[in-house]
Design a protein around this nucleic acid. Structure first.
Lengths: 165, 165
DNA sequence: TAGGTTTGCTTCGAACTCGAAGCAAGGGGA
DNA sequence: TCCCCTTGCTTCGAGTTCGAAGCAAACCTA
């Protein structure tokens, strides 16, 4: 477990801790805003936004779970709530009888649109205020390859897959 | 609610979404490692680490909650578990009869030390692999003022404080 | 120094999260 | 084609999280 002698530079470790702290603060601020402006939790907002961005406004359940880094069972639960609220609709996937496709409804889109301005305002005030456009670009350029790298490795659910017997 | 006409630049917004995604992936990876190497959850690790860093190895409950961006009631719950496990000790604050001081025990320090190598290894592999030392420094330099800015504003618990009557 | 307010923590109830287990459909290889 | 393994989702139970309410100490201010 853990590469031997994979010592981490303190400067790099500092970047990691800074990111953890900032993302904690950011998420907390966002949660307040989403709740206040649209009665949404962070997870539900993420689900709706991903669907809204997706071509056709829909995703396979599993793909969506991966996209927002969330457990499948948790997504089933939230999908149930969102469906009950009419923000989302589930239907069997056409190609695979096992699959379920989750799609955003017009009401769902409307809610995202309603919440987005306040959302951007909060993110702007809390997070972006101290970041010039150049800074933001730099930040994105730093984080994008990191994200891609993390996406590449163990796709999700690090449960040690039983090796084929 | 929300500054009027506070339109957010798409590039900046992209930085925000990238950060949210990376922190989600990172946290997921970390959670697996901490659980595997020390039976720790992310929150419990954060508590122990903060205490270990603190001079005297102790904090006021409230200060600790703010530091890790966590609810007070949630911290009470986790402190109870950690205390039961002997990793932490609670005692009334000397100066303020209401306050509770939470301190890390030797066992707690030992556990953090035991988990840290694996932790750094995972963070190194997942997050820092694609970040040179300069990149990491840049990232920290970008995030630090942002963090300070977020720390400055509403300290915690955005519950609209009743204005003094 | 008495009254009302604020602060620090815990308790409580409701909602949420996750992994394990369950179940049905898909996909080979013999 | 018949098994057996894998995949996709849901159900289930246990543990966790949060805000509101409760309670006690501390702080004003008259």
């Amino acid at each position: 477990m853990s590469d031997p002698a994979h010592d981490v530079d303190p400067v790099q470790l500092g970047a990691y801790f800074a990111l953890v702290e900032v993302s904690g603060l950011l998420r907390h601020a966002i949660e307040q805003q989403l709740q206040a402006d649209g009665g949404l939790t962070f997870v539900r907002f993420q689900i709706l936004r991903r669907l809204q961005l997706a071509p056709g406004g829909s995703h396979r359940m599993t793909d969506l779970a991966d996209a927002i880094v969330f457990s499948r069972s948790g997504l089933t639960y939230q999908a149930g709530l969102l469906e009950k609220a009419g923000l989302v609709a589930r239907s069997p996937s056409p190609d695979d009888e096992r699959g379920v496709t989750i799609a955003i409804t017009d009401a769902g889109r409307a809610l995202v649109d309603a919440v987005m301005p306040g959302h951007e305002a909060v993110v702007g005030r809390m997070f972006l205020d101290r970041l010039s456009q150049d800074d933001a670009r730099t930040l994105t350029d730093l984080l994008t390859p990191v994200r891609d790298h993390m996406r590449a490795a163990p796709p999700r659910s690090a449960t040690p897959r039983r090796t084929r017997r």
